[in-house]
Design a protein around this nucleic acid. Sequence first.
DNA 1: ACTGATTGTTGGAACGTTCCAACTCGATGC
DNA 2: GCATCGAGTTGGAACGTTCCAACAATCAGT
Lengths: 337, 337
Amino acid sequence: MKHPTILDVANEAGVSKSLVSLVMRGSDRVSPSSRKAVVEAAKKLGYRPNAAARTMVRQRSYVIGVMVSDLHNPFFADVIDGIDTAVTDTGYRAILTTGNRLPERERLAVATLLEMRVDGLILASPVFGREVAIEASQTVPTVVVGKAIRAPAVDSVTTDDRRGGEMVVNHLVELGHRRIAHIDGGSGAGARPRRTGYAHAMRGHGLESEIRTVRGSFTEEGGAAGMRGLLADATRPTAVFVANDLAAIGVVEVLDAEGLDVPGDVSVVGYDNTALAASRRLGLTTVDQPRHDMGRVAAGLILEKIGQDRETPRRVVLPPKLIARESTGPPSDSEQS
Amino acid sequence: MKHPTILDVANEAGVSKSLVSLVMRGSDRVSPSSRKAVVEAAKKLGYRPNAAARTMVRQRSYVIGVMVSDLHNPFFADVIDGIDTAVTDTGYRAILTTGNRLPERERLAVATLLEMRVDGLILASPVFGREVAIEASQTVPTVVVGKAIRAPAVDSVTTDDRRGGEMVVNHLVELGHRRIAHIDGGSGAGARPRRTGYAHAMRGHGLESEIRTVRGSFTEEGGAAGMRGLLADATRPTAVFVANDLAAIGVVEVLDAEGLDVPGDVSVVGYDNTALAASRRLGLTTVDQPRHDMGRVAAGLILEKIGQDRETPRRVVLPPKLIARESTGPPSDSEQS
DNA sequence: ACTGATTGTTGGAACGTTCCAACTCGATGC
DNA sequence: GCATCGAGTTGGAACGTTCCAACAATCAGT
């Protein structure tokens, strides 16, 4: 249960601690015979370097810390994948902490990473206030993913949600739709730009008079409520753009219950390209965020910033992508105008 | 960008480094006036304790390391939640690394944690071989979650999948079913005990002659293929127990395509109680594993083992729970025997 | 044979904290 | 008035590593 140190290895191999250190770091200024002796002694004793000691003297941990607000959101799994990909083979390693969407826990999670003296900090959609990110950015390169934060030293990586909203409208207009409604995500993250993009594209197609936005949320129930609201009206939309995939499922359920066919009677579009949307049973047209790339880019920004001290913050905005599936199609003839 | 140390704070406050250390650790043998001076100096300088230095001298990191094989599986989000819950307010903190289902990456992820000298190690469904867990267990308390590993010093926390299989059969028999088939998970984790539980319960109900197992996998396609196999037969089962929720969706799709109603013509049961299953659109009857509890128990075992050196390994097996939803119902009259 | 370079090896200082024994100083007891 | 006590404070050693200047041994060139 007690860890052997570099000194134990040195004794075992009959050399000095410095030589053991050189071997461990893969130096080429070591004779083959000493190298062999050290490697064997290390293996025999089960030696494992002590990162804490190394961090102390090197004044670098070679660790990137990632604070994830919510592991339940599959979004982050891909982002983390991307980070891992970018970090591998650079000599750096990534460790994660999570805050469970609770500001207080998130703060603690970040503190843990900072006390460990991570060389870079990635904050994935933090829910806490800007000040935590700003404070962290004063001592360590910091990137926020999935949320734009305005601060002199904080980089960010986001997707262009406004553009995503526009793409949805363009897709539906191309199919022949005109009466396109939007069930929004209320005050949720990214809800506003999606709404703006929708309205902007509608106007761009000369469909100002058809703009119809009802309030929803990023939940199944939010989508269902929004759809019930739309159905209460005199004229039914031929297509609905919903704030995210989960809410879109609520919409589809309501349409099912009313005996309306998707996409025959109403086309439905979600957002986020979750596994739910991809399932063949649902086949939901949706908007994909380049999650993996977001992680890769975030890690890249950190590594770049560790290298040389850049002063101006970078705000990277990546393009979304429309994924057309079976939940959208041309409006039925009777509906066409 | 340079971190102030305890010595900087001491200078600023006009006291010794030892006193600063006492204040930081919340000792009560400090006069109110010195405490105030230290606290203010620390805040002014933005002091943050250095965990690496503390770990060195205390020979303890007060950190629990968690290696997660795959963050895409929502299963782990709940397990991690449970770990966090158990660890909060004990003075310990949890950090995560991930291996992306790749044995080599997993090994690296574990090495990272061990080098950081975590005080306890939780391995969530590792795909690497037992030897990694065994080696780790020689230097640090180790618990494996979601997989039973047989080794003298490795604890484990799993769910009773055999019992889960039995519960499914019992539920279906209670509804009046007799022709109950099983589409298994092939060689996937937990597939075998579920299959065994199914067969055992069938025999228990005197339905030996009705036992019908076809090979599938833990994927949508695996479930679909299995169901097509079953439909090719002369007599159709009135109920199907599928290896997991994802595969169950494949089964439902095939039944839909064949114009068969769920549960009117065929009842379907999944396993894992994923968000997919819970969605009202699907309403899949399934078996829930107490994921949160699994995490809590795992962390508890670690904390207990850190406290005093226990020698015999613990193997905790938690009970699963059947969640009845709309995908199961009584067999139609014509089918009843 | 002597100088200089090259290769391999070494001990000591440093990193930032905690712990401990030791110190000061005013109050208390006789 | 002196020993004793306790509260508050202190400096030094230690933790395990890396880095550096310095050393020993071998070799090449003159």
